[in-house]
């Protein structure tokens, strides 16, 4: 189904754009995003994947595969350590799909699902980094310094981008 709509170009381009924006926004606005000890990690690429789950309808985009690809690039290019996001992103997509089946998705319930998604990403990436000794921060520090600001930033991004992305998907589908 994906093949016949304009989304076959639109979806990968959007994914690529949001992937790069994650790193570029951090470099362009370091004072706002990384004022020590707080660190807001931008996960716009996950927002694009999650919103695709919400808006794909009957299109059936192979989102888990795309999530693994995006996660792989995220690992290699941004962190330099293989094996964390390449698994975390598909898990989040699967989780969002499960939630989508469990209850009707609208703007508010979608916000809650995205809240859960970001929490899962932050926690799993924290444990991943802890295991390979890339961090020595305590769990409490992680909650206050990383999870809370990251949630605030990403939920704000969701609120701002939900309707524009919905409009874009509707436009590209027809």
């Amino acid at each position: 189904m994906l093949r016949v709509t304009k989304l076959r170009y639109g979806f990968p381009i959007g994914l690529l754009l949001f992937f790069y924006l994650d790193g570029i926004l951090g470099a362009a606005f370091p004072r706002q995003l990384f004022s020590a000890p707080y660190a807001m990690s931008s996960y716009l690429v996950v927002l694009w994947l999650v919103l695709s789950v919400f808006f794909e309808d009957e299109l059936q985009i192979p989102l888990t595969v795309w999530a693994a690809i995006a996660g792989g690039f995220f690992d290699v290019y941004y962190t330099g350590i293989w094996g964390i996001f390449v698994f975390v992103f598909p898990i989040v997509v699967a989780l969002t799909r499960a939630c989508y089946k469990a209850f009707p998705i609208n703007f508010l319930s979608g916000l809650l699902v995205y809240f859960i998604d970001i929490t899962v990403i932050c926690t799993l990436s924290y444990f991943g980094n802890l295991v390979v000794h890339m961090t020595s921060a305590s769990f409490a520090d992680m909650l206050v310094d990383s999870l809370a600001p990251t949630l605030a930033y990403n939920l704000a991004a969701y609120v701002i981008l939900y309707f524009p992305v919905q409009w874009l998907f509707n436009r590209l589908r027809n």
Partner: peptide, 15 residues
């Protein structure tokens, strides 16, 4: 030039 920053709290890293 700095072209990107790792979006992670655990690695203060720029590219």
């Amino acid at each position: 030039n700095v072209i990107a920053r790792t979006p992670s709290a655990w690695q203060n890293q720029v590219i």
